[in-house]
Amino acid sequence: MRTVGDSAIAGVTVVALCAGVWLLSGTGPAAPPPQPSAAEAARSAPVVPGAAAPALPPSPPDRVRIASIGVDAPLMGLGLTTSGSLDVPPAERKNLAGWYEAGAQPGETGTAVVAGHVDNTKGPAVFYRLGALKQGSRIEVDRRDGTVAEFTVDAVEVYDTDAFPDRKVYGAADRPELRVITCGGGYSRDTGYQGNVVVFAHLTGSH
């Protein structure tokens, strides 16, 4: 199991978020959650739907909103398990996401990480429709200091578990960036989801 660092938590999100318990229960839909199309992936020429905004002072986040896919969820802090892996939100709380407290806080310089379940035993969870996001979509994060950090989506990609690009997803950034992660890719009733959907975004404003 890889531990948290500059190349961070890919193994954790794959293992902890991706069982696909709703689908495995036999009560889920015939098709898995939406997956990003090739058109939403990063391109050789950077996609810049909005100019980068200056970094904000550090402040813990309290809530994440993604209006285009119906997300409006509280955020809990995530630490490490005894094995050195990133913990995850309780699966029974389907409308709850988490952020990695030892990393960058959303809005300050660096790569902030938000993760959440795609489903639980009762149905879709907070990031069930994450793969349907498009380049240029807006993500808002309410911060404890009263500001709202506004991020613009640069790319939405899906990676197989055994080909997860740790450094690309979790590497240090010289501007305020955000990664939002859940399960995705192929689905097997034996193993659950076989990869991760990752949203890449950067700070474009605040209010």
Rank of each mutant, 00 (worst) to 15 (best):
E140V: 09
A42I: 10
D119Y: 05
A38C: 12
P32Q: 08
R138F: 03
E92R: 08
S137Q: 06
A149H: 01
G20K: 00
V71G: 02
A19Y: 10
P46F: 02
A30I: 05
A201H: 01
Y193V: 03
R138D: 06
L203R: 05
D162R: 12
A41D: 10
A104P: 11
G98Y: 13
V64M: 08
A132Y: 08
S25Q: 07
G20F: 02
L75A: 03
Q105I: 07
G192E: 04
Y128A: 12
Q35N: 13
T109G: 01
K134L: 11
C183K: 02
G98F: 10
D72H: 03
G185V: 03
G116P: 07
G79A: 15
A201R: 00
D154Y: 02
V199D: 10
K94A: 12
D166L: 03
H117Y: 05
N120G: 07
P106V: 05
G84Q: 11
D154C: 02
L80C: 06
A19L: 14
R129S: 15
L56W: 05
D154V: 06
P61W: 03
A42D: 13
P74M: 04
A52I: 14
F151A: 01
T81E: 12
C18R: 01
G195H: 00
D174G: 07
G146V: 08
V4I: 11
V126G: 07
A42N: 13
A10N: 00
A112P: 09
I139M: 00
A30G: 10
A104D: 09
G171F: 11
A42R: 15
S25V: 09
S37N: 04
V88S: 05
G146N: 08
Y170T: 06
T109E: 07
P90V: 08
K94V: 05
D142E: 13
Y128E: 12
V21A: 07
I9S: 07
L133S: 08
A91W: 01
T27W: 04
V169N: 00
P90I: 09
Y159A: 00
T121I: 14
V118C: 06
E177P: 02
A52G: 13
M76L: 13
S206Y: 12
G195T: 01
P57L: 04
T82D: 14
L78D: 15
A38F: 14
V12P: 01
F151H: 03
A115H: 04
F127V: 10
P33C: 09
E150W: 03
I139C: 04
V156P: 03
G70F: 09
Y170G: 05
R189C: 14
P89W: 04
A51Y: 03
F200H: 15
G70H: 11
W99V: 05
G110D: 10
P49Q: 14
D87I: 13
G192R: 00
D162M: 10
T13P: 01
V126T: 15
D162T: 13
G185S: 04
S83Y: 15
A201F: 00
P124R: 11
P124N: 09
R93N: 12
